[in-house]
């Protein structure tokens, strides 16, 4: 069960993608944090950074970016950290909506409406 054909492999080892860093500061994101790009990619930028900025033109979850880039979530988080530190992205947290452990009834109502409209 070869999941990756040779063609889909890259010569880049993950530690070169992260520049040798192995961990991001986890407090900024979790896997489902929503990433919003704040600028366009520039030439000479690391290709993964450029791709993230392209993907994040519309809000996108960390795992979604991770799946698109075919990179582990933790690598993506390190790359996102670089972009966050240079103010190229902002972060939204889904967990923000579940205040006091219960969803906000207004939100639920709107979700229900939206689902009915699907």
């Amino acid at each position: 069960m070869s999941r990756r054909s040779v063609d889909r492999e890259d010569p880049d080892r993950l530690y070169t993608v992260t520049g040798g860093r192995t961990r991001a500061d986890e407090t900024a994101f979790d896997s489902v944090s929503l990433i919003v790009g704040e600028c366009e990619p520039t030439p000479g930028m690391q290709s993964e950074h450029a791709k993230i900025l392209q993907l994040a033109r519309r809000p996108m979850a960390v795992v979604e970016i991770s799946a698109e880039l075919r990179l582990p979530v933790s690598v993506v988080k390190i790359l996102l950290r670089d972009l966050l530190d240079t103010n190229r992205i902002t972060v939204r947290h889904p967990s923000a909506i579940t205040r006091a452990g219960r969803p906000d009834p207004e939100t639920l109502k709107q979700v229900l409406l939206a689902l009915h409209d699907l």
């Binding site: 999941r3 990756r4 492999e9 080892r13 993950l14 530690y15 992260t18 192995t22 961990r23 986890e26 896997s31 991770s66 582990p72 979530v73 933790s74 690598v75």
Partner: peptide, 25 residues
Amino acid sequence: ARLRELEEQYGDHEEIFADLLDLDH
């Protein structure tokens, strides 16, 4: 290739992930 699989599998486990990257290197 196996290390890459493990790195993907343990991408969320920082300690393991760091060790895997070291091993990979």
